[in-house]
Amino acid sequence: QVLVIRIKIPNSGAVDWTVHSGPQLLFRDVLDVIGQVLPEATTTAFEYEDEDGDRITVRSDEEMKAMLSYYYSTVMEQQVNGQLIEPLQIFPRAC
């Protein structure tokens, strides 16, 4: 299952990153890619938005798994409803 992660860049749009092994993705892998997209920032975590629009911070593989399972459940709903699949949007955080 292909996963598209949209890395939101403060004040300048976003970069889409296509991942072919989504469920095996590790927290460190995401930080590495964010580091390539935002080389001047030191990113130690990132956030995503849940169904209520609240930002949830991801700082570990466990939290990463929770984010992915949340995302895959929303994708299934979108597929069932015949909607366009939205990329998983993440917001890098420099701490």
Results as ranks from 00 to 15, higher is better:
Q36I: 07
R55L: 08
Y48A: 00
F27N: 04
M64R: 00
N81H: 15
S21R: 11
L3Y: 09
T74H: 11
S60G: 12
A45Y: 07
E86S: 08
N81F: 09
P23Q: 12
P92K: 01
A45C: 13
D54E: 14
P10K: 06
N11L: 04
Q24E: 12
D29Q: 09
Q24L: 03
Q24C: 06
D54P: 01
G22M: 07
I9H: 12
E63K: 02
M64I: 06
I34Q: 01
V75P: 02
M64L: 13
P23G: 10
D61E: 05
I5G: 00
I7R: 01
S12F: 11
L3D: 00
R28W: 04
V58G: 01
Q79M: 08
D54G: 13
W17N: 00
V15I: 14
L31C: 06
P39Q: 07
I34V: 05
L31V: 08
D29G: 01
P10Y: 03
L38H: 06
L84G: 14
D29W: 03
E77D: 13
Q89G: 04
V30G: 00
T42S: 12
V75G: 07
D16A: 01
R6C: 03
A14M: 07
Y48P: 00
A94G: 10
Q78T: 12
D16H: 00
L88W: 02
G53Y: 02
K65G: 09
V30W: 05
V4I: 15
T74V: 08
V80N: 13
E49N: 08
R6M: 03
L38V: 09
A45H: 15
L68A: 01
I85Q: 15
A94Q: 12
I9F: 08
L25N: 01
T57W: 08
V33K: 15
M76H: 13
N11T: 09
A94I: 15
I56H: 12
A94E: 13
E86P: 11
Q89N: 14
F46A: 00
P92T: 00
A45N: 03
C95H: 15
L38Q: 10
L26Q: 14
V4G: 03
R93K: 07
R93A: 13
D54I: 14
I7M: 04
A66M: 13
E77M: 13
M76T: 10
E62K: 10
E62A: 12
P10E: 07
S60E: 01
Q36D: 06
M64N: 04
R6G: 03
T42A: 09
M67K: 02
V80A: 13
L88M: 04
G35C: 05
P10S: 08
E86L: 07
Q36Y: 03
V75D: 04
I56A: 04
L25M: 05
L38C: 15
V33S: 03
S21Q: 11
I34S: 03
E86G: 09
S21I: 05
L68N: 01
L26F: 11
R55H: 07
Q78I: 04
I90C: 04
S69N: 13
T43G: 06
E49P: 02
Y70F: 15
N81K: 11
D32K: 11
I34E: 05
R28C: 08
R6E: 01
L25P: 11
I90N: 00
E62R: 12
K8S: 07
A41D: 10
V30K: 00
V58M: 02
R93Y: 05
S21M: 06
I34D: 02
F27L: 07
E49G: 01
T57N: 06
Y48T: 00
T57D: 04
S21T: 10
E77C: 10
A66Q: 14
G53A: 03
R93F: 07
Y71E: 02
G13Q: 05
V30Q: 01
D50C: 06
F46E: 02
Q1N: 15
F91H: 06
A41F: 08
I90R: 01
S12W: 07
E47L: 04
I7Y: 02
P10W: 03
H20P: 15
Y72C: 06
I56K: 07
G53Q: 04
Q1H: 00
V80F: 09
T43A: 11
Q36W: 03
Y72H: 12
L25K: 03
G82Q: 11
L68P: 01
P23S: 11
A66I: 14
I85F: 06
M67W: 03
Y48H: 01
R6S: 03
E47C: 07
E51Y: 10
F91M: 04
E47Q: 03
S21E: 09
V2E: 14
